[in-house]
Amino acid sequence: MLKGRYYWLVFALSIPAFIWLVPTIWMVSLSFQPNDLLARTTSSTALGLVPLPFTAANYAALFQYGQTPLWFLNSVIVSLGMTLGVLLVSTTAGYALARLDFPYKAPLTVLILVGLMVPEQAVFIPLYTMFADFGWHNSYHALMLPRMAVPIGVFLMMSFFKAIPSDIEEAARLEGVGWLQIFWYVMLPLARPAMMTLAILTFLYAWNDYLWPLVSAQQREFFTITLGLASIQSNFAQSEGLGRVMASGVIASLPVVLLFLIFQRYVVQAMTVGGSKG
């Protein structure tokens, strides 16, 4: 009886899940259809969801001439760099604010939390003029640095560290272990699930960020894939090569999707572990 209800649930959920997937399937399918066919109709076989007539020419062209691989590499560098940076500054600051006592702690905490209210998009103009004065535009660090200043990571890590029972720390203190060692050897390993969450949030943010790269990167060498795709999806090009644009979209997405599929088990596991401890 319970078993039966479970299968019904799975079945019932499969329908929205399939609908959820349709746009993605469609993109993949379009990317395998000839361009001049797509200029006339996008629904040749099964509403276009099945790539018939089939061609791989769009991908061949992409790898032969395209800048998509370079942009993709840029996105990886920027996203990874930003993620590492955010993890570094957030865990250290989050730990200090959550577990250590020091003068002016309360006002400092407020100062940092107030920063949560400053949306990044509200400061992109002064940041732009600042980086222009420094001559920093069109560089990886220009793409990474602004996000590292956003205190949401500190906030997340602080909440997490606060929730850790103090007896572990006290035991270590009695042993005479220094604060930095406690942070490094005791707290960081405990914080892995929270760091994982933060890392995923940051990586996705970095991967998807559009406004800041749009303003800061004008040279091809520093286009991220997000920006690069925007530059080729303008409608003038679209009507002349839908299949190719879709292929770029697939190439841009495929590695991240794969990465996520591998990564996700670990994420869920990490969350489960973190949950059972809490």
């Binding site: 800048q67 732009y128 535009h137 749009l214 303003v215 800061s216 004008q218 040279q219 091809r220 286009f223 690069g228 925007a230 530059s231 080729i232 999806q233 303008s234 409608n235 003038f236 090009a237």
Partner: peptide, 14 residues
């Protein structure tokens, strides 16, 4: 430098 239509002048100015 590839640039789309929509943002061309914005990016050029930037």
């Amino acid at each position: 430098l590839p640039t789309d239509w929509g943002n061309y002048y914005d990016q050029l100015k930037a």
